[in-house]
Each structure stands twice: as C-alpha cells, then as structure tokens.
C-alpha cells in the first residue's frame, strides 16, 4: 500500500499514453480499422520532416488531404471536419494551414485520449453543420464556395445557426468553440500529439521554441531579433522518456 519514502515506481508518460490510446481505439472501432489507422505515440525525433513518427503515423499528412475514416470519425465526418479546419486556418501565403499541420490527426487522437467525452459532440455537431449548410446555403458544407463556408462558420460561431431542426446541441457556438480550441491545440501545441507538423504553428507565431534553459544572453538575443529558433518537441529532450 505504501511507496513511502522510496519514490514512485517508474511509469513513463508514454507508457500511460500507449495504454490509454490502445484501449480507446479498441473500444471504438473494429480490429481491422484500428490496425489500419493505429495511433502510435511518437518514439523518435520528428526533426527529419516527414520521416519521424510525427510524420509517419498516418500517411499523406503533408500531401493534400484525402478523406478517409479516422479512428473516431467516419469518412463523411472527417471530410466535413477537414473542410471546416481548412477554413479556420487556411493554407495561404502566410504558410501551411491546419490540414498541413496535421490538425485532423491531432483531433482524432485526442478523441481517443483526453477528449474521448467529446466524440459525440463532434458527430452531432458535424452533422448539424452539414444540415445547416443545406438548409441555408443550398448544399452540403463541403460543396459550398469558400465564401459561403466562411459565412456559415461565422453564423455557427456567433450562435446564429442554433435553430429548430438543425441539431446543434447546446448552441452552435459551443460546437464552434470546441473545434476551434482543438484546432489551435493541434496547430500550436507540441508535435508529440500529432499536430504542428514541421512546426508550422510555431513558425507562424515566430515562437523561438522549447528550451529547458534560457540564459541572459539568449534573452538579449531574442530581444535583438537574433535568437535562432529551436524546433524540437519537448519529448525530444531525453529526460522525459
């Protein structure tokens, strides 16, 4: 009963993640699908773009998005969600967007892990987004022009898409905020979780990167615009294995 005075037994965070991820996947999808889309926690450095596990757990993350079933969402749901996050953070002259940065994979993994309670809200919300698009703009969300997609998303964001017969649970704004929050986590969070591929999010912000120690000279260099950004996951520092 006690691990008193001695310290706790060594269980790494990655061990925990691996266990939780596997259990979540097994519970939600048939074995064959689970094998095909297995969520594999990263174990090697993502510094080599597209080759480390950050780039390899799912195919085509830097190529144009190809709709398919994710672990927690159907192909149809994944298609709508990808169209939505593509409008939230588009790929444009400022650089890669949410799809390029692996946000879809981030969300799918999150739905197997910390955000498993949100899976139903995603399914209901994505269906409602599509229903609302058809009722008000005359077509499914993915077929609308980007202008109409943006117009729909604004109405979803401000809660104006909350009407009888659409199907948003608890207001369209809460669905929008949930997706936006997870999209931002996937875009700007640590690449360990499957997003922020090639550090696209950190580059957009000019974030100087994860360092365990920042010397006075580093801070002065930062202030002078002369600090070279570090581009590595926290988990590439060996001590957090």
């Amino acid at each position: 009963m006690t691990d008193s005075n001695g310290r706790r037994p060594a269980i790494s965070r990655r061990d925990l993640l691996r266990t939780a991820g596997a259990a979540g996947a097994a519970a939600l999808v048939p074995g064959a699908v689970a094998a095909a889309t297995e969520v594999t926690p990263a174990t090697a450095s993502p510094e080599v773009a597209g080759q480390g596990p950050v780039g390899s757990a799912l195919p085509a993350e830097t190529a144009p998005f190809v709709a398919r079933a994710l672990t927690n969402l159907t192909a149809r749901e994944a298609e709508i969600l990808s169209a939505m996050v593509d409008r939230l953070i588009p790929s444009d002259e400022m650089g890669p967007g949410a799809l390029d940065a692996g946000v879809l994979r981030y969300i799918d993994r999150a739905l197997s892990e910390a955000e498993s309670d949100a899976a139903d809200a995603y399914r209901a919300g994505l269906a409602a987004l599509d229903t609302y698009s058809r009722y008000t703009r005359g077509g499914p969300f993915i077929d609308l022009s980007t202008v109409d997609q943006d117009s729909v998303l604004i109405d979803v964001q401000i809660g104006a898409a909350t009407g009888a017969g659409v199907g948003f649970v608890g207001g369209s704004g809460s669905f929008f905020n949930m997706v936006k929050s997870h999209t931002w986590q996937g875009m700007f969070g640590d690449p360990e979780y499957g997003g922020n591929v090639n550090f696209a999010g950190w580059d957009l912000l000019d974030y100087p990167g994860v360092r365990l120690g920042v010397s006075p000279q580093d801070q002065r260099d930062l202030e002078a615009g002369q600090l070279e950004p570090v581009r590595r996951s926290a988990y590439d520092y060996g001590m957090f294995e």
Partner: peptide, 26 residues
Amino acid sequence: RPISAANMGTYGQSRNWGSAWKRFIH
C-alpha cells in the same frame, strides 16, 4: 506559450480565424 498566444484577443482588428487572422497573429 504558443497556444495561449494564438488565442489572444484581436482587439477588434480581425475575426479570430481565417487568412486575415493568420496575418494578424503573425
């Protein structure tokens, strides 16, 4: 930190998503 920084208010200068927002946040 990056996520919280990207969630900053836009002080009325931009919608908080989309291409114009990307320019704003950069």
